[in-house]
């Protein structure tokens, strides 16, 4: 089978085209939609003129092109290299944001390992903390919310697995994790509804009512609340606020998201 040809390094002069020429060729390639060629051009700038102002700019563009090509691991590597060398430069926000996006693109379904969701949150959190007034903060926060929804979704998925097998204790623990750690995700309504189901199936009616009451308080018009209400209704019970004011406390805790 063929193998790579040997290269005589003496002839391998450091071709030094002027950096701005290479950089502009890169930009032209992007416009022409030829991302892989653009990535090569930007890498060439970085190879021939390391640590120049041009190489800094091309590092960012190289991260961008690799991200667009779907070569996420390379994009993350180049992005992190930029952050090591120029953590305070003006494109740092964009580079860090690209690293976050590269992790975000690799988030897998909730039935699989969610380490990319965790990495997305870390990377995007850095964008929010270190560059609070950059224009990427809003989208970074949106991606954080998505990643947290994924983590909550994984807890729910395992919770449902146990609920289906009538292992109520295990399912309650998982749904509680969502209620306590991920209250501001899209899974919270279902988590509360599942808690109603789990406690109700075990016969601990009072907990079921409390959970339904909290669900009703915070999401009165949610379909999950309608189901829970109807479930308790069937058993001749309404989700009434039980004993004293601590429901208000629980509800308040949810609203303020503390």
């Amino acid at each position: 089978c063929q193998s790579d040809p040997d290269i005589d390094i003496t002839k391998l002069a450091a071709e030094t085209d002027p950096p701005e020429v290479l950089y502009n060729q890169g930009l032209a390639n992007i416009k022409a939609g030829n991302m892989s060629e653009a990535a090569r051009k930007f890498d060439a700038v970085d190879a021939q003129h390391p640590f120049s102002e041009w190489s800094r700019k091309s590092l960012v563009m190289s991260t961008f092109t690799k991200y667009r090509l779907g070569r996420y691991a390379d994009a993350i590597a180049t992005g992190n290299r930029y952050m090591n060398l120029y953590p305070k430069s003006e494109d740092a926000a964009y580079a860090q944001y690209l690293v976050g996006l590269s992790y975000w693109k690799q988030i897998s379904s909730v039935t699989q390992d969610q380490k990319n969701s965790v990495k997305t949150i870390e990377a995007m959190q850095r964008v929010v903390d270190e560059f609070p007034n950059s224009e990427y903060v809003d989208d970074a926060q949106a991606k954080i919310r998505f990643a947290r929804d994924q983590l909550a979704g994984k807890e729910m998925q395992v919770g449902r697995y146990y609920l289906e097998r009538k292992e109520y204790l295990a399912s309650i623990q998982r749904f509680r994790v969502v209620v306590e750690r991920y209250p501001n995700t899209n899974q919270i309504e279902e988590a509360l509804a599942r808690l109603v189901e789990a406690y109700y199936a075990m016969g601990v009616v009072q907990e079921a009512q409390t959970a339904a009451a909290v669900l009703g308080h915070n999401y009165p018009d949610s379909q999950w609340y309608a189901d829970s209400y109807q479930l308790l209704q069937k058993g001749g019970l309404e989700p009434r606020e039980n004993a004293g004011s601590w429901i208000a406390r629980a509800g308040k805790q949810l609203l303020t998201g503390s």
Partner: peptide
């Protein structure tokens, strides 16, 4: 139990 589930994303 309710068969509906909240949609989640991910590849």
């Amino acid at each position: 139990t309710i068969s509906r589930t909240t949609p989640t994303g991910g590849r």
